[in-house]
Nucleic acid binder design. Structure first.
Length: 89
DNA sequence: CATTTGACGCCAA
DNA sequence: TTTGGCGCCAAAT
């Protein structure tokens, strides 16, 4: 059974959960791994509705190198990325 | 079921 | 280089 819930959502979660510490992926990259290379917006839509702490959604940033948004406080996202060695352009 | 919204991405001016 | 506009997709209303 693959479509109990939106498969795209599940894939996004799986991909984001697999991001190793110290690395970050762009929305486009995540969307690409989820099977829809053009669904960068949908990735954000899904992550936004997701409040699961198991999902390191702070490791997902925009292709421009900017952070984008965060549902738990932008400062928290910045802080975590800095903690992983990432610096904002 | 249809419309709107939005944590995006890329191109043109 | 910066700003504006268009396209794509899923979730929310």
């Amino acid at each position: 059974m693959k479509n109990s819930v939106s498969e795209f959502k599940e894939k996004v979660f799986a991909v984001v959960k697999k991001i190793p510490r110290g690395s970050v992926l762009t929305y486009k990259e995540v969307a690409r791994r989820a099977g829809k290379p053009r669904a960068s917006r949908a990735v954000g839509a899904v992550l936004r509705t997701n409040f699961n702490s198991e999902i390191p959604c702070h490791r997902v940033i925009r292709s421009d190198g900017t952070l984008g948004g965060y549902n738990r406080g932008a400062s928290e996202k910045i802080r975590r990325l800095k903690s992983e060695g990432y610096k904002i352009v």
